[in-house]
């Protein structure tokens, strides 16, 4: 049984929409119902980007979610905007390299991951998003690495397929945290 909604948010360029796409593809390959709703508009240029992913055994009712089961946030404005929206019993995954001001939210588990620093130290440049995703997999068990790898293969155009192994390394690093 799976019925979960995830908001992923951060700066444009951090691979926010891509992370959502990988999750959606992983779900699709896994045979469950998925939706991926990006924010669109002028706020995407240099500002914040976010997307909502729904993963569900049943057909996805509303792709627009105001009370997500979890959020993956990769900058301070996104954390500030979405931390109060998470359902009771839900989870917050935040990139503590970029979010300095955070506190426990009652009834919600918070996981602080220094993903951007880790990506830099481990020569996984630009893959902080995948490190975050790895941690999400570890804490929620929604998918294993094989599903994510299958999702990546669908989400990445052929000419960029050589980047899949480094993406998987980043996911595995996140899972080890």
């Amino acid at each position: 049984m799976i019925n979960t909604s995830i908001i992923i948010a951060g700066f444009g360029g951090q691979g926010i929409l891509f992370t959502g796409k990988v999750l959606a593809y992983a779900g699709m390959v896994d045979g469950i119902n998925v939706s991926h709703l990006p924010s669109y508009g002028p706020e995407m240029r240099g500002g914040t980007a976010n997307c909502t992913v729904c993963l569900c055994d049943e057909p996805v009712a509303s792709p627009l979610v105001t009370r997500p089961d979890m959020i993956i946030v990769m900058n301070q404005p996104s954390y500030d905007k979405f931390k109060g929206s998470v359902k009771k019993g839900g989870k917050i995954f935040l990139d503590s390299s970029l979010i300095s001001e955070y506190s426990e939210v009652e009834g919600v588990e918070t996981f602080a991951i220094p993903a951007t620093e880790l990506a830099r130290d481990k020569e996984l440049n630009g893959l902080a998003n995948m490190i975050m995703l790895g941690k999400v997999l570890k804490e929620t068990g929604i998918f294993g690495v094989p599903e994510i790898e299958a999702g990546l293969k669908k989400a990445v155009p052929e000419k960029k397929a050589h980047l899949i192994p480094s993406n998987i390394s980043a996911v595995e690093l996140g899972m080890s945290l």
């Binding site: 796409k21 939706s35 991926h36 990006p38």
Partner: peptide, 10 residues
């Protein structure tokens, strides 16, 4: 509407 145009589904 904008949601239907922008969202991705299988």
């Amino acid at each position: 509407d904008g949601i239907l145009g922008q969202m991705m589904e299988p």
